[in-house]
């Protein structure tokens, strides 16, 4: 009997010891090379303070496979031109991309208009670096499933037809898939609660949105024009299955946004070299041509924060910027 009690004692002691050790164990660094070779851990959560690597990312507005292919190429190109290791870090949502930029976990991010403004408002000194030729005057396209009975409209007032329909935006923080469309819906007097179900859906990426409208899950939605046109070109969608009903007026959209302190970290003039690398992308070079094609652009041009004042205003009006 005494044995049993002693055994129980040992068990209790072991349990308490174990429980006491666990928190120390899991927060103790054991490997001295804790952040060795970041390239070997691509796809894993990123390592902070591995500063010799330039970490680039993008808002997840399209299919992840496409983003991985595109930004893999961009990373290779930048590595070659700038002579620094570049790593692409995939991110699942717009808000997380802004936050990771603010916390310094990302050095260079391909943002939409709204997320770009959010990013430099949160990280003073950050700036728009370069954008595509098409981003100076970008458009959104309202699309509909033919079975919905919706017809192409000629002016913004026509958007009232969308009342009572199942309608979806792209991501909550998308400029072309949410912000500007919502602005024009407001202009037409359509509130978010006017849609079927009392609220619009948020489908995430533009590709998902097209697929959902095509399948009939939603009767109508709104999409980035560049993605829409390229999916039409690729034959991934036909106007039999989804019809465009209205194209918004132009507004400034996507841009590369860069951290303010890269020159200190990578050497003087680094930010300028980065800008040059994008602006100098040339269709004559095979890899650069591929990058331009995947971006759906002829070329890149320098960008500035000032171009986005209108976006910031709309953002404040709709409550996405405080």
């Amino acid at each position: 009997m005494a044995l049993t009690i002693r055994e129980r004692w040992a068990v209790a002691l072991a349990g308490l010891l174990l429980a006491g050790l666990l928190p120390t164990a899991c927060s103790t660094p054991t490997a001295p090379n804790g952040d060795a070779d970041p390239a070997s851990r691509s796809g894993q959560p990123l390592q902070p303070n591995a500063k010799r690597v330039l970490r680039i990312s993008a808002i997840p507005d399209q299919n992840p496979e496409k983003l991985n292919r595109l930004y893999g190429l961009v990373a290779d190109e930048l590595t070659e031109q700038l002579q620094v290791p570049v790593q692409f870090i995939p991110i699942t949502d717009y808000t997380a991309a802004v936050t990771a930029f603010r916390t310094g976990d990302l050095d260079l991010v391909w943002f939409g208009g709204l997320t770009g403004v959010q990013a430099w408002l949160q990280k003073p000194g950050a700036r728009a670096l370069a954008q595509r030729d098409i981003d100076r005057s970008f458009h959104s396209v309202f699309i509909a499933n033919p079975r919905s009975g919706l017809q192409p409209i000629s002016s913004v007032e026509g958007l009232r037809e969308l009342k009572g329909k199942r309608f979806t935006f792209g991501s909550e923080s998308s400029t072309s898939g949410r912000l500007m469309p919502q602005f024009y819906l407001n202009e037409a007097g359509v509130q978010l609660s006017d849609f079927a179900g009392g609220a619009p859906g948020f489908s995430g990426s533009h590709d998902a949105l097209i697929a959902l409208v095509q399948s009939g899950t939603y009767e109508a939605g709104v999409v980035n024009e560049e993605v829409w046109l390229s999916r039409l070109r690729e034959g991934k969608v036909t106007t039999d299955a989804v019809i465009p009903i209205w194209r918004t007026p132009g507004y400034a959209n996507y841009t590369w946004v860069v951290q303010p302190d890269l020159d200190q970290q990578f050497g003087p003039g680094f930010t300028t070299k980065l800008e040059q690398a994008f602006v100098g992308l040339d269709g004559a070079n095979p890899r650069q041509a591929q990058i331009l094609e995947l971006f759906g652009a002829e070329r890149f041009v320098p960008a500035s924060n000032d171009q986005y004042q209108a976006i910031e205003q709309v953002g404040r009006q709709i409550g996405k910027i405080r």
Binding site: C26, S27, T28, G34, D35, R41, Q44, Q47, P48, N49
Partner: peptide, 13 residues
Amino acid sequence: VILGWWIGIAPAS
């Protein structure tokens, strides 16, 4: 400890 190291938890940084 191994798992923590592997997923890249480094308390110092």
